[in-house]
Design a protein around this nucleic acid. Structure first.
Lengths: 235, 235
DNA sequence: CGGGCGAAGATTGTATAAAGTTTCGCCTGT
DNA sequence: ACAGGCGAAACTTTATACAATCTTCGCCCG
């Protein structure tokens, strides 16, 4: 039975070229090398990755569906600029879904997974010590995705991937102080609760963790935003 | 101000050709004219809609992301065949999200929306009287989407659209009796609760409604499924 | 007569070229 | 000097052509 060629729809180490472009652009956006509003020309990206526009276009469409890129008809693709309202929606959705995800994760916990989580915490601590903000943001997102993978719930995993990508962009945009993302301590606490199979504690910690992240953002009123824009344009 | 050409990213009456293909194929799948496992050839679809393969591919990729089509590398696109495990995941997600959605819907209720809901209920009753199963399934899904639109929460709306599409496919696959989808009475009850701004009742009714839909499905054990398949092949 | 190898056909993946749209600069007219 | 419009350049969109891969059918060998 040579069913070897078949590969998972969302393989993490996806070796095909579209995935490489998608992940490269995602990394560039999330590491703040491409600011919101930046135009993503197809030729430009294609040249960077040595691919034709066909593949670039596919990747950009996927990113648009993830919500970190906006495609405007006949104008091109731009790095998304989430509004404060978007931000609130994203975090509300996370507060709804993630506590349930940790519940499931605890149900299907295993020594191998606990090892993986511990290893991840170590990586996060190291990045934080280095003061590497880019790696911190990336690893913080990966922690949440790891828990979702652990839960074995593919629908929740898919939703959360989207929410994490958007969150990372939002955090980079609206972070108040330059505090390095969300505290590693929170993640450690969640892992401890998972290790103890304490669902109630895990849910509670996840929830407060998410609340704290959102509380550290400066989500100004959309109306005020409009005014400020008018101010700039009028001046 | 010639900003007429600009259109919403997910316009319901999207007039562009990709959307027309996507909606046509979606309708065909949800109306059971294309059975799960059916191959969706690019040329075949392109000829039907008078479009080139480029557009067909775009549409199929979007459908794959929605989960009602599977794309296998170098083999093509097929109508998805959700497993019982998939079905349980989808309905669990709906039970988590939809009660919250009705909450929001009640927060932003308006006379215009109530009219719209009432009108929809009438359409559902009419289709049921006609015994038009296809229309019933479609309208039943649209009811849930309508409530999500009412909530004004774009993230939840996006997630629910995906869940509804998958649900429709699942219901058509695993329905036990040929009972016409989910009872219109449930929907009427939910609308009544929304009209009374009774969040608790609305949440409870939505939840029991979803439970009842799932209870009417015959979600056989995956293991048993394998066995039956082996049985057929062996015979 | 059954099984496996191989070539032809069909289908998808990728690249390139043609068509349509937007944008920006420049020029003209007032 | 400034407003308005014409036109070219750049880009996206769509179509078509080419390359790679898989499937299928027939043939040969055991």
């Amino acid at each position: 039975m040579a069913a070897k060629t078949r590969q998972k729809p969302d393989a993490p180490d996806a070796s095909d070229r579209v995935s490489r472009i998608r992940e490269g652009v995602t990394a560039a956006i999330l590491e703040h090398r491409l600011l919101p509003g930046t135009k993503l020309g197809e030729d430009e990206i294609g040249e960077i990755y040595g691919a034709s526009r066909t593949l670039v276009r596919t990747a950009l469409q996927q990113l648009a569906h993830e919500g970190i890129v906006n495609i405007e008809k006949n104008r091109g693709a731009f790095v998304a600029r989430p509004t404060p309202a978007d931000a609130r929606e994203v975090f509300e959705a996370r507060r709804l879904i993630e506590p349930t995800i940790v519940d499931h994760a605890i149900d299907s916990v295993s020594p191998a997974w606990l090892d993986r989580l511990g290893q991840h915490l170590a990586e996060e601590r190291e990045a934080e010590l280095r003061g590497d903000a880019r790696a911190s943001v990336r690893l913080s997102g990966e922690f949440h995705r790891l828990v979702a993978e652990m839960s074995g719930h593919s629908i929740y995993l898919g939703f959360l991937k989207e929410l994490i990508a958007r969150s990372s962009l939002i955090i980079l945009l609206y972070r108040r102080h330059d505090t390095p993302a969300c505290g590693t301590d929170h993640h450690a606490g969640i892992v401890a609760a998972i290790r103890k199979r304490d669902k109630q504690a895990a849910r509670a910690q996840m929830l407060s963790h998410l609340r704290e992240i959102e509380a550290e953002l400066f989500l100004k009123d959309p109306a005020a935003d409009e005014l400020r824009l008018a101010d700039v344009l009028g001046a």
